[in-house]
Design a protein around this nucleic acid. Structure first.
Ligand SMILES: [Mn+2]
Ligand SMILES: [Mn+2]
Ligand SMILES: [Mn+2]
Ligand SMILES: [Mn+2]
Lengths: 146, 146
DNA sequence: CTGAAAGTTTAGCATTGGCTAAACCTATTG
DNA sequence: CAATAGGTTTAGCCAATGCTAAACTTTCAG
């Protein structure tokens, strides 16, 4: 057995967290897109690609390409030069995103951070909180109110 | 002025959060790498690429490629077939990562989530908390203890 | 001191998510 | 009702992160 010997075992366990993060990242963009599209539909009656681009701060072309992937994933439907619609699955993901987003943002506010920071930080944190942590945040909020 | 008219103004403001997230993501991997390398050096005396790969749960080849970028960024030094060292800047980033990581993980525990969840969620959340939120978490911890 | 096992790097490929510039529609306006 | 301003998509580029398979080093066993 050449080379230094390696203590196997506990090392691999730690990779779980990093695997979860990589998985979170790949769903993160989709979550933000559908949530944003849902907001636009509720606010203005329709979601246009250029509105999505503006709010995300990316180029139109980027949105077009991403929407194609979301369409393949069954989250949105669209036709060229038309506004964007969410599928049933898209709406479900959007609602779930909103739910998480609200809890995280309200929680940060209750913790005492400014509105702007709560808004900004929650946009990133929302994708990395497990249901268990969300429950703990909700519990904290409930206790705070009472 | 053809096409539907667009209400300009407040729309662009919202892109700030998403820009921050995209920036966070591009530094996230570097932060995890240097923190992990620092841990390996402290634990075993040296950090080898394959240990990093094992803990992250990615292929060796991926680590090699990423380390090349980190080297270009001035965070690590290395020679072929040798273990990895952190530069001064690398150590600084690692220490800062550890600091954030500890606060977030301790905070989640104090909030009442399980150790495993705290470990996993903190690995993702740490990259999306502003200094203001970190201060609020530290404040909460201080209050809890007393 | 040498051969081969085991660890490490290279080569080559794929996907995601950005960008700009050019081509392409649509809808308003004259 | 046609021209065109202006919104939308396509084309083509790039960097970051993954992967597998093949080539390459290192180190220890004999
Ligand atoms: Mn959200
Ligand atoms: Mn978000
Ligand atoms: Mn960390
Ligand atoms: Mn991390």
């Amino acid at each position: 057995m050449p080379q230094r010997t390696k203590k196997p075992g506990a090392a691999k366990t730690r990779s779980v967290a990093f695997r979860r993060i990589r998985a979170d990242h790949s769903s993160e963009l989709a979550e933000d897109y559908v949530e944003l599209i849902a907001d636009l539909i509720d606010e203005k009656g329709e979601a246009r690609g250029s509105d999505v681009a503006m709010r995300l701060g990316v180029a139109n072309a980027t949105v077009v390409k991403t929407l194609k992937r979301l369409q393949d994933a069954g989250l949105v439907t669209q036709e060229p030069y038309r506004s964007i619609f969410l599928t049933g699955e898209g709406w479900k993901m959007a609602e779930d995103g909103r739910r998480k987003h609200k809890i995280v943002e309200a929680f940060l506010l209750a913790l005492g951070v400014s509105e702007e920071t709560a808004r900004i930080d929650s946009e990133g944190i929302e994708h990395h909180v497990s249901e268990e942590t969300l429950r703990a945040m909700a519990r904290f909020l409930a206790r705070k109110v009472m």
